[in-house]
Simulated assay, not measured.
Amino acid sequence: MQPRRRTKQIWVGNLPVGGNAPISVQSMTKTDTRDVAATVAQIHALQQAGCEIIRSAVPDLQAAKSLGPIKRSIAIPLVADIHFDYTLALQAIEQGVDAIRFNPGNIGSEDRVKALVEAAGTRNVSIRIGVNGGSLEKDLLEKYGSSTPEALVASALRHVELLEKFGFTNLKISLKASDVPRTIAAYRLIAQRVDYPLHIGVTEAGTVNVGTVKSAVGLGILLSEGIGDTLRVSLTGSPLDEVRVGYDILKSLNLRQRGPVITSCPTCGRTEIDLVALATQVEQRLAHLTYPLHVAVMGCVVNGPGEAREADLGIAAGKQIGLLFKQGEVVGKFPEHELLEALCREAEALAASLSRKMLC
């Protein structure tokens, strides 16, 4: 792991981004923004799951005007996603959003960008310059032949210079492509050129299974190199999965801790209980916990006792029976059908106890 890249710190609403602030997990609503009730309900669910910044699409004026009541009903920063029509950004700022994301490839002339940044500066609204491999400016596509990493960076730098020309520096940058190597190369290049915070992600990563793998590889490499201040896992599926996977990536690198870390046996011919079902049920039953308990669910006598003993809580199972470990000590022996309830009961109690101690 390389030390985290030091960046300028900005604020997205009341959330610090960059500098020494934790890497934040972001998602995007998948409701119709014009449906205020549905959008607010989805954001509340995402807040509960740990989402720290939420972005909503603004396809028209009605959607822009819906941002006001949405913002007043939620507790996390709201970002307006703007394409083509800069006047929608102006309306979104009027409605009280915390940030604007615009795509350099389709926002329009310099005068439009100037009007946008002047309004944002007046309201202390931050901006994300969101470069996407699928919508680069035509002249850059002609110059570079395709949406190469160099072309993505050129697009970003062009607009950084433009915003700086207007005296605006309350910004972060993203350079997303749908394939991992191009995404990694683009972020490595931009990290050498600017000290603004970087929002990282592999865009249009795919369905939950494929997209999780692509995002874990791409974001994992960047984060291990110290690159990234916010992230979004872009999945074709529930935004709750995006948040879950985002935290799982950060947890795997010890960059953030939220919720249980599950160690579970892959199973083999030595396994003598239904460990697959048990591990799956444990993960589901403990998903509501926010304290980062380490829980081991192990199914054989080779590695099981050692892993269970090193975890906060662990099961080392044998033939239709298992030992329950708590902070290194055996606290019970249970038949297979009682293991789930015994482990979950202890996990909830231990998480509550450790959380209270942390607050004291």
Rank of each mutant, 00 (worst) to 15 (best):
Ser146Asn: 02
Glu346Arg: 15
Glu118Ile: 02
Glu142Arg: 13
Ser224Met: 12
Ser264Trp: 04
His44Lys: 15
Val125Gln: 06
Leu255Val: 08
Val36Gln: 05
Ser135His: 09
Gly314Tyr: 14
Gln284Ser: 14
Thr183Gly: 15
Gly18Lys: 02
Val295His: 12
Leu141Phe: 03
Val194Trp: 04
Phe84Lys: 07
Asp195Leu: 12
Ile54Phe: 11
Leu313Asn: 05
Thr271Asp: 08
Pro77Ala: 07
Ser224Gly: 06
Gly318Gln: 06
Leu253Phe: 02
Lys214Gly: 07
Asp195Phe: 11
Val243Glu: 04
Cys344Pro: 15
Leu78Trp: 08
Val180Tyr: 01
Thr230His: 00
Glu242Gly: 15
Asn170Thr: 10
Glu137Trp: 15
Asp248Tyr: 07
Asp274Trp: 15
Arg182Gly: 04
Ile129Cys: 05
Ser135Ala: 12
Val58Thr: 15
Asp85Arg: 14
Met358Gly: 04
Pro69Gln: 06
Asn303Leu: 01
Gly134Thr: 09
Ile100Lys: 13
Ser56Val: 14
Arg309Ala: 10
Ser66Gly: 13
Gly322Ile: 12
Met358Gln: 05
Leu219Asn: 11
Arg244Glu: 10
Val243Lys: 13
Lys8Phe: 05
Ala45Glu: 05
Thr87Met: 01
Arg345Trp: 01
Arg244Gly: 06
Gly332Val: 08
Ser155Asp: 08
Gly201Asp: 09
Gln42His: 11
Glu348Ser: 07
Lys138Leu: 01
Pro292Val: 01
Asp248Val: 03
Arg256Ala: 08
Leu324Ala: 08
Gly211Ile: 09
Thr148Pro: 02
Thr271Cys: 12
Gly206Pro: 09
Arg4Pro: 11
Gln95Ser: 06
Ser27Met: 10
Leu231Asn: 09
Ala45Gln: 11
Cys344Met: 10
Ser56Glu: 00
Arg188Cys: 05
Ala75His: 14
Cys265Arg: 13
Glu310Val: 02
Lys8Leu: 13
Arg244Asp: 04
Val243Gln: 07
Arg101Cys: 05
Leu359His: 10
